[in-house]
Amino acid sequence: MKKIFICLILTGTLILLTGAGLAQQPKVSLPVSQISIGTAGTAGTYYIVGAGISKLLDKYLGVRSTAEVTSGAIENIRLMESKKVEIALLTPESADLALKGLKPFTQKYDLQAILPLYPNVNQFLVLKDSTIKSFADLKGKKVSLGSPGSGILGSNQLLFDGLGMPFSEFKPQYLSFAENAVALRNGSIDAAIVLTAAPSPFIMNIESTHSIRLIPIADAELKKVAGKYSYFIPYTIAKSSYKSLEADIPSFAAWKLVAAKREFPQEAVYHIVKTVFEHLDELQKVHPTAKFIKPENIGKVKIPYHAGAIQYFKEKGYKF
């Protein structure tokens, strides 16, 4: 009886150890062991969502995945080219310029989409007591347009080009999200124009000490910009996005994406897309904008998709 009891204990222990060993094994064998994701500064939505995706890949694919802090989309494209990150979060305008080899790029980049993200919303931000009511009021003012190398700066360059308003009409400042918060509070800038998800953590942070206003975009202004850059679409910022708002704010947006180089292994991209789409409930707990990352929005992305993403879309019958 004693021998039987000892055997049962040993057998149970072996099962537990074997089970633990199996639990530690990757669920999928991939041609890559690490997936670094280019995001942006830690105060923005890019980093939060990128970190959420990274956690899913680490948890379900058994690869080492990290969300890398960068200056944003423009730098992310260069980091992919130099193989310092495998995939990256991009704005559609930065991806389009990179594919065509247009400024600020000096060469063409062979990028492909792997996932749709969320609408990147233009948010023209001032403190509540500001005298600025429109783009015309920016003349001579200090205006933050995004940090060097960021997709926000690239987007603002296209925005003001579409409006026919050169940077020389005001005093451009090149600040990050965190720097914007400090500068608006201490009065060293008059306005910040950012393209990011709404609600944005950095704007909510400013609201913890100061009331803010978002300047609406006039229909005529939107038509001018969208007429030149078709990936900008009308978008309404809901009053509920920020506690300072007294009404919905008409604006515009462009659909963000996750991209990889064409040469990145098809099998790896397939499993990245599969993992994200099959665990959207977890990603949506990270940030509310993750609700936009779904199959119905695949067509919002206008650059070509990677073969690995197409493989998954076809398998599931998704239109793209």
Rank of each mutant, 00 (worst) to 15 (best):
D110I: 10
K243E: 13
L56C: 09
P265G: 04
F124G: 00
L89M: 14
L102V: 14
V121L: 03
P199I: 02
A226N: 10
I272F: 01
V28S: 02
L30D: 07
K108C: 05
I6T: 12
S33P: 00
V269D: 03
F160M: 04
Q24L: 15
L14M: 13
Q266N: 12
P119T: 12
F135L: 05
A220L: 13
K103T: 14
S244A: 11
E278I: 03
G149F: 09
A247Q: 15
D190E: 11
P199M: 02
L184S: 00
A40I: 00
I203R: 04
K224C: 08
R185S: 15
L195P: 00
A259Y: 03
E246L: 08
F277T: 03
S94L: 04
K223L: 13
V225Q: 06
A218Y: 12
K224E: 13
I293C: 09
A197L: 02
L61G: 05
K285M: 10
Y231C: 04
N205Q: 13
I37F: 06
Y118P: 02
L138P: 00
P234M: 01
G21K: 06
K319P: 08
E267C: 05
I203F: 10
K228L: 12
E86C: 03
L97D: 13
F170C: 06
K302Q: 15
L175N: 00
P288T: 12
A191S: 12
I132L: 15
H306D: 01
E267L: 13
E75H: 07
Q25H: 11
P199E: 04
A238E: 15
I203Y: 05
S168P: 10
D248K: 12
S208W: 01
P304V: 07
A192L: 06
I193W: 05
V301I: 15
G140K: 05
I114E: 00
L184K: 01
A136Y: 05
L257P: 04
A309W: 04
L79D: 11
I37Q: 02
Y109A: 03
Y270H: 11
D110F: 09
P201Q: 02
N180Q: 01
V258M: 15
K2T: 08
V225R: 03
V182T: 14
E278K: 12
R185H: 14
K142Y: 13
Q34M: 09
A197M: 04
L125C: 06
E81Y: 14
G72P: 00
V32L: 02
P295W: 08
P166R: 12
S65D: 11
E282T: 08
L99S: 07
K128G: 08
T236E: 11
V286C: 06
L184C: 06
A220S: 15
Y305I: 02
P304M: 03
L90F: 03
E169G: 02
K300G: 05
V69S: 10
I193V: 14
Q311K: 15
I6G: 06
L17S: 09
G38F: 09
D248E: 12
G154Q: 12
